[in-house]
Amino acid sequence: MIELWNALPLVIQILLKITAILLPLLGMVAYYTYAERKVIGYMQVRIGPNRVGWRGLLQPIADAVKLMMKEIVIPTKADKTLFLLAPMITIAPAMAVWAVFPFDEGLVLADINAGLLYILALSSVGVYGVIIAGWASNSRYALLGSMRVAAQIVAYEIAMGFALVGVLVAAGSLNLGAIVEAQQGNVLTWFWLPLLPLFGVYLISGVAETNRAPFDVAEGESEIVAGFHVEYSGMAFAVFFLAEYANMILIAALSALLFMGGWLSPLPQGWTGGIWVLQDGFHWLLLKTFFFMFVFLWLRATFPRYRYDQIMRLGWKVFIPITIVWILVVALAVVYRLPPWWSA
């Protein structure tokens, strides 16, 4: 089997690896929408989708078929090229980011040194899709939505970037695998504890970056209908949707990787007793990611939408000062080798 794999040309090998990452990701996106409707349904004492398939399990497939069958309406005065390009610009970075994501020790498509920086750079490119969509639609609501997105994402990117600076100061590396290795130990040596303020800032900025409730002023259906994608229909709309959910999964997975020890087991090495489930492995990463994905839905069902000026205040006047102070604290702790995280 391994011989057969090695006999394949490199391009085919990489293409197969990409497929092995993206197909489960798209499946997760599809069932994340189902989970969202179910979870929020139960939180609001409803049942949620329950008609297609057993307990509504085939609902995402029905939705996908419906969206594919629908006509893509292009407004008369729209900039046609950019209008069709915008969804692609949104989804391409959301997919490409996964190239450097390690799923287990050594299980990564491209093990590059500047992995964290690559993720930050690509996720900042995704905002173009939203801005271009708003402008090319030639609609007031769409333009207002994309203006809000541009300001919000630029503001929260700084806080998020500073939170990540704290992580890489703590780990001493930009490589995602090395960052997880630096958290080796047990649940208390993971970075969530020494970097607790940064962890909070990162998670909330992640919600703001993906334009999810309570930061979803970009869509704001009560004020600007649906924001930047008000003119999109059918598959073009679905692509925006895919990108948004893929980004949510990415933020959840990154929170697990950077602050919650990734694939590391919460138990110390000696306590696992040779039981496979308790040892380090991909299943821990999956479990932690699912938890953060649930937090996204939980937030949406719990909080009302933030007001726009309060969003700006939170980003610029609260988060950025917190991160700057805590980077200093972390740097001092690293320099003075504060046990148990940096004693070695």
Binding site: L117, L120, A121, Y128
Partner: peptide
């Protein structure tokens, strides 16, 4: 690669977004 990624992060991800923001207005 560091400079290349930083170019995308800073110029494409931040500076040009603000530029586009102004031009669109």
């Amino acid at each position: 690669e560091f400079l290349g990624i930083v170019l995308v992060l800073v110029y494409v991800g931040a500076v040009m977004v603000l530029f586009l923001f102004v031009i669109m207005m």
